[in-house]
Design a protein around this nucleic acid. Structure first.
Lengths: 195, 195
DNA sequence: TACCTTTGACCAACCGTTCAGTCATAAATA
DNA sequence: TATTTATGACTGAACGGTTGGTCAAAGGTA
C-alpha cells in the first residue's frame, strides 16, 4: 500500500485544486475577474489565502486553469458532433448544443466575452480564449465548404457574426425575450438548410 | 462686462470639464474603466487630482458625464436619418453611419460593450447605456413596421443580433479581416432591400 | 481685504503576494 | 509496539503598492 501514497497525495491535491477552481469560476463569472479578490475566493472556498498560493502561483494562473477546465467541458460537449456525417445536421447540432450550454450557464459565457475584451492580448488566458474561437471559426468554414458553397468563408463569417450577436443579446437581455428562440430557429433554418 | 462674469465663469468651467472628459474618455476606452485611475486622468490632463474632485464628485459621476457626452455625439450623428422618408434608405443610412463611427473610434465601442457587461445594473451609467440600446431597438422596430413587414419585431431582433455580432467581430478581430466589409454590404442588402 | 481656484500631501481601504511557522499524519527506527 | 523524524497541507500576519477620496494651505484676482 505504501507505494501508492504518492499518487494518492497527487489525487487529493487535484481534488483540492478542482474545488478552488469551481469556486473561482463561480465568482469570476458572477462578479467579474477584476472585481473578485483572492480573499473572496479563499473565504468562499473556506481555505486560507496562503493555501491558494500553494495551489496556484498567481491569480492569472488560476484564471488560466479555470478557463482550461471549463473549455475542456465545452469542447467535450460538442465533440459528439464529429460523429455526424451530414454537414447540415452537424451544424444544427453544433448550434443547438452551443446555445443549450449558453442558456444553462450564461454567466460563464458573459465572462468569456468580458475577458476577451479586457485581457492583455499577450496574456496566456487571452491566448486560450482566442484559440477556442479560432477553432470554432475554422470548424464552421470547413462545414460550409463541405456543404458545397463557393462562398464558404464569407458564409462562415456571416454565420459567426449572427451567433455572436444572438449570444450577446441573450447575455445582455436574458431569456425573458420571447423573440430569442424564434430567431435562433430562424437562424438554423437559414444557415443549415438555406431556407 | 461685470454682469456677464458669472456666465463667463460657468462657460470657463464647462470648458475645463470638457477637457477632462475628453482625456478620461481616451483613457477609459484604451485601458478600461477599472484600470484607469483618477491619478492617470489628472496627470494626462495636466491638472491635480484635487481639482478633478472639484469638477466631478466621483469617478462614477465622471463616467456618467463621459457617456452622456459621447452618446450625445452618436445620437447627433444619426439624427440626419430622420430627414429620410423612405424607410429602406433610412435603415441603410443608419447602418452605414453607425459602422462608420465604429470604424473611426473602435475603442469607444469596445468600452460600451465592456461597460455593459461589467457595470452594476443599478448604476446610473448602466442605465444611460441601456437607454441608448433600447432606443436603437425601438427605432429598428418602427422602421421594419413602416416597411410593411408583418413580422417586424422578429425582423428587428434578427437585425439587431446581426449588427451586434458584426460590431463584436470588428471590435475583437479588427479591420484586417477582409470579410468584414463584404459581410456588412450583404447585411444591408438583406435587411434593407430583402435581396 | 475677500473670494475663488488649484495644489499635492495625506488617508483608510484594499489589492496580490510572501513567508515564518503550526500541526496532523505517515514513514522510519528501535 | 513505542518513539522519533520527516512531510506537506495549512494558516494568517505582514508587505509593498495602488486606489478613490479629502483637506488645509498656497496662489491668483478683483
Amino acid at each position: 500500500m505504501a507505494p501508492l501514497s504518492k499518487e494518492q497525495f497527487e489525487a487529493q491535491r487535484q481534488a483540492s485544486k478542482m474545488k478552488i477552481i469551481v469556486v473561482a469560476l463561480e465568482l469570476f463569472s458572477k462578479k467579474g475577474f477584476i472585481n473578485t479578490s483572492i480573499n473572496d475566493i479563499a473565504k468562499t472556498a473556506n481555505i486560507s489565502k496562503g493555501l491558494m498560493y500553494n495551489y496556484f502561483e498567481s491569480k492569472d494562473v488560476l484564471l488560466e486553469e479555470c478557463l482550461k477546465m471549463v473549455l475542456e467541458g465545452v469542447v467535450g460537449g460538442i465533440q459528439a458532433a464529429t460523429q455526424i456525417k451530414n454537414p447540415e445536421e452537424r451544424l444544427e447540432f453544433l448550434i443547438r448544443t452551443s446555445f443549450d450550454m449558453l442558456k444553462e450557464n450564461p454567466h460563464i459565457w458573459k465572462m468569456f466575452v468580458s475577458l476577451s475584451l479586457q485581457l492583455d492580448k499577450e496574456s496566456a488566458s487571452y491566448r486560450i480564449l482566442n484559440e477556442y474561437w479560432s477553432q470554432l471559426f475554422k470548424n464552421a468554414v470547413s462545414i460550409f465548404k463541405e456543404m458545397g458553397y463557393e462562398d464558404y468563408e464569407e458564409r462562415a463569417f456571416r454565420y459567426g457574426a449572427m451567433m455572436d450577436g444572438l449570444a450577446m443579446q441573450y447575455i445582455l437581455l436574458g431569456e425573458e425575450n420571447i423573440l430569442f428562440d424564434k430567431t435562433l430557429q430562424g437562424a438554423i433554418n437559414i444557415y443549415c438548410y438555406n431556407k
